[in-house]
């Protein structure tokens, strides 16, 4: 196991902090993906990978920020772009996907799916209004 050459002058506290956030982020991403494989229905499965997009991305972005900031002795925060982008886009994609799945299940008449919303009062509460 070779050490990392360009990080030779990284102080110990920064190395420990980077290691902590890396392990947290990657471990939570792995746990989320295991849940994505193991959970039984789609509506339960759609929750699991968000572990990787919230704390998985957050941990690795924070590790990268600490690493490059300490190593280059100036503030390096451009990784936070990825964090903001993933945080903003994940709810949008998963909401679209869940509504498409709900639409497909209703059209096919699968059991265990909430029925149509009683009245089209608003567009925003469509997903929550179907549950009884």
């Amino acid at each position: 196991m070779s050490t990392i050459e360009h990080a030779a002058d990284l102080p110990a506290w920064a190395a420990l902090a980077v290691s902590f956030f890396l392990v947290i982020g990657a471990g939570l991403t792995l746990i989320g993906t295991i849940g994505f494989v193991r959970l039984p229905t789609f509506y339960e499965r759609i929750h699991a990978p968000t572990l990787g997009t919230s704390w998985g991305t957050g941990g690795i972005v924070m590790a990268s920020m600490i690493f490059f900031t300490v190593l280059s002795t100036r503030l390096v925060v451009h990784e936070i772009l990825i964090g903001i982008f993933v945080t903003v886009t994940t709810p949008v994609t998963l909401m679209l996907l869940a509504r498409a799945t709900l639409h497909r299940d209703r059209v096919e008449g699968n059991p265990g799916v909430p029925g149509e919303a009683p009245a089209e009062t608003g567009e925003g509460d469509g997903a929550a209004a179907g549950a009884d």
């Binding site: 196991m1 070779s2 050490t3 990392i4 990080a7 030779a8 990284l10 190395a15 420990l16 980077v18 290691s19 902590f20 890396l22 392990v23 982020g25 990657a26 471990g27 991403t29 792995l30 989320g32 993906t33 295991i34 990787g52 690795i60």
Partner: peptide, 18 residues
């Protein structure tokens, strides 16, 4: 340095398994 190196290896293995 060794802790950092091993945690990077651990993170890569975790992400590849995921």
């Amino acid at each position: 340095q060794m802790i950092l190196s091993w945690s990077m290896m651990f993170a890569q293995v975790c992400l590849v398994v995921a």
